[in-house]
Amino acid sequence: MSGGGKIPVTVTEVVRVNELIKRFKFERSDGGLLPTFSGGAHTVVEMQDYGTSRLNPYSLMSDPADTSAYTISVRRDDEGRGGSLFMHRHVRPGMEMSISNPVNLFPLDLRARKHLMIAGGIGITPFMGQIAQLSAISGRFELHYAARNPALAAYASELSARYPRQVHLYFDDYDQRIDLQGLLDGQPLGTHLYVCGPKGMIAWVRNTAEAAGWPREAVHHEEFLAPPSGKPFEVKLAVSNKVIQVGEHQSLLEAIEAAGVDAPYLCRGGCCGQCETDVIDYDGTFLHNDHWLSEEQHAGGKKIMPCVSRFEGKTLVLDR
């Protein structure tokens, strides 16, 4: 039930985009077509990292109408838990991998009269699929894309060449900043705002839009949280009657899966709600990192999102 609809794929291309980003192309190993998807969707890539099974979500950045292949871009995170390093160091053309059916937690609102997109760094990837989808149906969009410098602004030159009037670039090294206030002031009625990028940028865009009176329903964001590392801890799984250890660089969800227990998940980034798990008993402190549970639920000690949240203390018993 959790991993439903896995697709066996072959890596057919690995391209170094810049010093931090590599692009990977997947085609079905059986030669068939991949499912069509909607702009903003992601796939969960399953990696067999020499004994550790990793499942990382990456935005699909190819044209959604092209079902011959999917492409993703992966930014190398030297401080991370290893998924991006595995992709960068070990994934080569010809390798067999497994990916999930596409899932969209950052869809376009098709009622919008105009789509205003704000991207920061690797946050450009979901917009690549959305722009391809919109341009096919002559949808109106405008992209404002900020990166450190031109060398690190993945796909900026391709996008500007293809959509010169719609694409606006900003480089930190040249002290260029998005005039967000001005941008939000000048939009026609019916515009929807989308942001994907670093945590600070998402908060800045959402807060500025809220202060400017934008309706909550017209502001969309996507932020995948990488599961944070932390101290190891022990968990009892009541239903499956197992006691498991969660390692320093392992998420609780990964530890549950490693113990052979099937647990539901979707985004693995703390935002979809699918892995929500009931706490039966605990003695200690929760380290909640998700965007799903409310503050009251975080304080209540009855729920945890095992994909990103951790625990410190003596006892934790879960209904799983």
């Binding site: 439903g4 609809g5 059916n101």
Partner: peptide, 11 residues
Amino acid sequence: LKFLLNIRQGS
């Protein structure tokens, strides 16, 4: 509703 929102392509 929670179940339906999470229905995935192919499932």
